[in-house]
């Protein structure tokens, strides 16, 4: 068997498990990376990796050679990851009103801090040790802002901003038209800017 994905896919379709194993081993890390970027949660990302390959195996017959195997696989992973985000958002939308509900709301991205309770941040122009804390505070603010994005806004934004994928690629991964991707990114940037600009504004 040669090393190309196309050959491995053809062999896997013919029932060769070893060929599918090769694809799993070759692409797992990249799928994990994508899943983590979108979900922001390590355990969710591991689940997404597993589910992605399971779906890929079951849908292997539907794979068409119009795109590469990696693109097709990443598209499945992006769908799985946005499913996780939707599930998380539905859960978080209930608020922490009951123990049963709030017990389900803990994860790395859960936001239970009211904006008004946030601490005052030193301006980027401030000298001294406060600047050292700014990086981690910024990250927390970014994380909190990210929880306020819709699943598609978040997915589009992280794929563009963190992964450097083009709008056309993102459209392919998320199954959206270019304009829909652009608008998701615009809305995401607007929300994230709104959360960060008070911190970044220089003191007068």
């Amino acid at each position: 068997m040669d090393g190309s994905d196309a050959t491995a896919v053809a062999q896997a379709r013919a029932g060769d498990h070893e060929a599918f194993r090769l694809l799993v081993e070759r692409h797992s890390r990249a799928v994990f990376r994508l899943a983590f970027r979108i979900t922001g949660n390590e355990h969710d990302a591991d689940d997404v990796v597993q589910e992605t390959f399971l779906r890929a195996y079951r849908q292997l017959g539907r794979f068409e050679d119009r795109s590469t195997f990696a693109t097709w696989l990443h598209r499945i992973a992006a769908n799985c990851a946005t499913d996780v985000l939707r599930e998380r958002q539905r859960r978080d939308a209930r608020g922490p009103q009951r123990a049963f509900s709030s017990a389900l709301g803990r994860d790395g991205w859960h936001d239970d801090t009211d904006e008004s309770e946030m601490t005052e941040f030193p301006s980027v122009n401030d000298p001294g040790p406060e600047r050292l804390a700014l990086g981690s505070e910024m990250r927390e603010r970014v994380e909190r802002a990210m929880t306020r994005l819709s699943p598609l806004e978040r997915a589009a934004f992280v794929l563009r901003h963190f992964e450097g994928r083009s709008i056309a690629e993102i459209g392919q991964l998320l199954g959206l038209r270019d304009n829909a991707v652009k608008h998701s990114i615009f809305r995401a940037v607007k929300k994230v800017r709104g959360a960060l600009e008070p911190v970044l504004r220089p003191t007068r």
């Binding site: 081993e25 070759r26 797992s28 390590e42 390959f53 910024m138 901003h161 800017r193």
Partner: peptide, 26 residues
């Protein structure tokens, strides 16, 4: 603003990650 948004670090996965995924999947 956008330059200040740095990507979160990707958690490390062991060298055997691909094989581990396969072992659970197979």
């Amino acid at each position: 603003t956008l330059n200040a948004i740095e990507p979160p670090e990707i958690p490390r996965r062991p060298e055997t990650y691909g094989s581990d995924v396969w072992a659970r999947l197979e």
